[in-house]
Each structure stands twice: as C-alpha cells, then as structure tokens.
C-alpha cells in the first residue's frame, strides 16, 4: 500500500496541473487578444526567450500561444469524444447486460466486429468520409473508443444482475426497465465515469496521431498533433523547442488526468468495512 503522503502529493500535483491547463485553455484565448496564426517571418525559429517562452515556429508564430490553442482543441476533441464514446458504450453495454439473450449476442458481436479492425485504421476510415474538421475527428475517436466501455459496463451489469437485490426488486414488482435504469445503471455509472476520464487523454492521443498523419484537423489549425507534425522538419535541423513543448503538453496532462482518475478509483472502492468494521 502506498504511503498516504505520496498519495496526497500525487493527487494534489495532478489536480494542480489539470487546474492550470483548464484555466489556460479557458481564459487565455478570450483574455489575450493575440492572433495565434499571425505569421512573422523575421522572427522564425527563435529559441525560447522571455518574449517567446516556448520559442517560435518556422513561420515565426509564437509557440506558447499556439500550444495553448492546440491544447484547447485537443482537450475539446478529447472531452467530447470521451463523452460520446462513454454514453454510447454505457448504453450498449447496459442493454446487452441487462436484456441478455439475443440482444446481448447481437450487440457483443457488433463490438467484436469493431474491435477486430485496428483502431487507427478504423479512425482513418471515418475521417476519410468527411471534410477535414473537428467533428470528423471527434466521430473517429468516438467510434473507436466506445468498445472497451461497452465491455466493462456489460460485465459489471452481468455480475450485478445475479445479486439478490435484483431478485428483491423483481419480487417487489419492478419492471425490467426499472431494474435496469434504477438499480443496475446507477451501480455502473461510477465505473463508466472513471473509464470516461481515462479516455480523455486516450482520445487526445488519437487526435494527435491522426493530425500527425495529416488526416486530422486542417494543418493551419493549432492542435497538439499538428504542432508536432510541423515541428518534425525543424527537429532534424537541431531546433528542439517546437517538438518538445507540444509533446510535453500531451504527456503532462495525460499523467495528471491519470493521477486524478487513480484517486477517484481509490474512493470508489473503499473497503467498506475498513472504517468501522461493524
């Protein structure tokens, strides 16, 4: 068991990072009236300095500003995609688990079919159907990410379904719908919520991968994937900052979100007897 102090440290540092990231992406664009797309070729590829803490890119655009905008888009994509994937996954998983039989078999074969295609390939297929933009990317991430949630929720519902409290509800006259919605679903929501939080960084990475391959957002739009992609050429020339900072902004919030999710999970499973032992 981890030392409670490390535990607290992890929780608070994670919360701090997530807080700073949220404040930055929410407040900087409306408050700082600067154009992140303003090109200034006289200032291209400047290393980090006081004027440009993250340096500038090959078109002389301020990287700090572009990173904040990029993080904003990536987070937006991550959050919305995770939300959509969780809602779809929970609905499918709960329906399969609670209804069972024919419905269960059909839905789970569907999940298997989706899972059998490599995620990136499936994601690329979805974005290829539409014009480049934020929504196709969100759809692409959601399509590939609801599967695991569906599986988690289904197995959770299956194990809950055999508990006597479901028998008791049935015996008390509850309809199948009421058992599913009032007794089974609330019991799996914390698990599904946890899966959703952990999915946010996952979705951000998926977006970055698509953008890095040039299939995600239009390249003028600052997203973390696009930033790393455009920085690739300058990295070979020895300019490290255009790659490093977007990369860090992908990794650090990922760790922070995972840290928060971990703390949440610890609270979800308090050994019930541990406090009182009654």
């Amino acid at each position: 068991m981890a030392d409670p102090r490390t535990h607290r440290l992890r929780l608070w540092s994670s919360a701090l990072v997530v807080g700073v990231v949220l404040l930055a992406v929410l407040l900087v664009p409306p408050l700082v009236q600067l154009d992140e797309q303003a090109v200034d070729l006289s200032r291209k590829l400047l290393p980090p300095s006081w004027a440009h803490p993250f340096g500038t890119d090959d078109l002389g655009r301020d990287l700090l500003l572009r990173c904040v905008y990029g993080l904003r888009i990536s987070l937006l994509v991550g959050l919305v995609a995770a939300l959509v994937a969780t809602v779809v996954g929970t609905a499918v998983g709960a329906a399969a688990g609670a209804l069972g039989g024919w419905t269960d078999r059909t839905l789970m074969r569907l999940v298997d079919a989706f899972s059998s295609v490599p995620h990136l390939l499936l994601g690329i297929f979805v974005v290829a159907l539409f014009q480049p933009g934020v929504w196709p990317v969100i759809a692409s991430v959601a399509v590939t990410h609801w599967l695991s949630t569906a599986r988690i929720v289904r197995s959770e519902v299956l194990s809950l379904r055999t508990r006597p409290f479901v028998d008791a509800a049935v015996s008390g006259g509850a309809s199948r719908w009421r058992v599913a919605v009032r007794h089974l679903l609330p019991a799996v929501l914390p698990q599904a919520g946890l899966a959703a939080v952990l999915m946010v960084p996952h979705a951000m990475w998926h977006e970055s991968a698509l953008s890095f391959l040039g299939l995600g957002l239009p390249s003028h739009q600052a997203s973390l994937g696009n930033l790393v992609q455009t920085a690739r050429s300058s990295l070979l020339a020895g300019d490290w900052w255009p790659t490093l900072f977007p990369g860090l902004l992908l990794i650090v919030p990922t760790l922070a979100i995972a840290g928060l999710a971990g703390a949440w999970r610890d609270r979800l499973n308090p050994r019930r007897r541990s406090e009182l032992m009654l």
């Binding site: 409670p4 050994r271 541990s274 406090e275 032992m277 009654l278």
Partner: peptide, 20 residues
Amino acid sequence: ESGCGKSVLASALLGLLPGN
C-alpha cells in the same frame, strides 16, 4: 450482538485494524 465490537477486538489482537 452484531456490531457490539467483538470482531474489532479480534482484529486489534491480530494487528489488522484499519489506519483510522
């Protein structure tokens, strides 16, 4: 009766009480 503290006493003897 259940909840009278007898299990807690046993856990105390085994050093298996929770942190609080």
